[in-house]
Design a protein around this nucleic acid. Sequence first.
DNA 1: TCAAAAGTGTTTCCCTTACACCCATGC
DNA 2: GCATGGGTGTAAGGGAAACACTTTTGA
Lengths: 239, 239
Amino acid sequence: MKPSNTTNLNSAEETEDLSVYFDMGVSVTNVLYGFEDEQLKVFIQKISRYPYEGAWALPGVLIKSNEGLENKSREIAEECFGNGDVYLEQLNAFGKIYRHPLGRVIDIAFYGLINMERDINSYRTDKEFKWIPVTEVPELAYDHNEILELARQRLKRRIVNRPIGFKLLPEEFTLTELQSLYEQILGRSLDKRNFRKKVLKLDVLLEKGRDENNDSPGRNPLLYKFNKERYNHYMENGF
Amino acid sequence: MKPSNTTNLNSAEETEDLSVYFDMGVSVTNVLYGFEDEQLKVFIQKISRYPYEGAWALPGVLIKSNEGLENKSREIAEECFGNGDVYLEQLNAFGKIYRHPLGRVIDIAFYGLINMERDINSYRTDKEFKWIPVTEVPELAYDHNEILELARQRLKRRIVNRPIGFKLLPEEFTLTELQSLYEQILGRSLDKRNFRKKVLKLDVLLEKGRDENNDSPGRNPLLYKFNKERYNHYMENGF
DNA sequence: TCAAAAGTGTTTCCCTTACACCCATGC
DNA sequence: GCATGGGTGTAAGGGAAACACTTTTGA
């Protein structure tokens, strides 16, 4: 994958040395969302060395020239959770010239939805990490707060257009849990009756009986399961 | 902007040579839309040399490590039209490993809306170029057809959420022209009465009298102008 | 006088929103 | 028996979609 100097490039000027174009770094960064204790959380880890020793950051890594972008994003998830088979979507490129202290690095950010019950096989042991509620995210290294803000906006838009919320919930969940997830992501409270009407009309939920292992007061809630067939049908034919 | 080898990177392994990460190229590619003769068109140019001699492609260029992404996108517009002050938005990164024959190149694609009447000061003379209707775009070099497809989808989504259509029309335009633009972008025909109701209710148009220089049969159409104050008001307070 | 384009209202339906009370259960 | 959370229906308003004829002008 080394550049060749024997030919000219479409966009390069006449007989310029191509190597001046091939000195950049590319990194991939993941915004990984999870839902736990009725809170939307994001996965961050501590940087151990220069120049951000001790700072928190989103998981990310420089790629080599034979590594694919989405692949790398999956590898990062794999490193974090022992599982790269999760929902991931490209966000945007972040390319401010001085965003990285060691050279010019273009960052390609992805966001992912992690199911805390099913997607996590193991946690990495080589770094300090944590799931932090999105409302309590500290200052992060690089431009990672900016990336997070864009991810937040994207997730907000996606959640109302596609029923991806299920990807963050356990196999079986109550409508109250689902509503709480939506409220966290949208940042506002929703009307209980209207929410239920809407989501049930979508017809992507299967009723799975009542939750009998419930120690909270009040009626035992109905459990629902996500209906993959209906979802796929919608994805093919539109909502 | 050369990488330093005296320190370690967050994501790099213990004492690895950092230079292996800094051998990639980054390019910026523009999808530039224009509207002319009641047709949505895109700007393409001919590549003159290896390895795509004679092929058509979107305007794009490799960047150097001290050049910003959006800046470069504006520079490309500047080269094409003598004007870089146009509407531009980042689309996505395209990073397939073998998308570029000369080395690993990550492409950051932008799309832009070009006003054929006001945005174009001059055309470049160093390359063969043309405005081609989006329905007649040929096979393009690299993965540019893919980029174009993504741009199409993005524009389709944007046009219904924001009144950016005005950016493609002359200073004064008729509702029929505006509708035609929307139909081209959305790829389907719209009901004339419903379209007019909707766009007039938005309250971002100013009536500017009748078009008296009209040699087509039928009534002379009313001309409208885009109302920037109302538009800015909406952008700040939502639609 | 005819062909071509401009312009104009009404009805139906569905989605959204607002809103308040009863039910089951644990303590 | 009371506190806590689960669960339910209706009415009003607004936006989307369907639909056809009259007016103006040039040739």
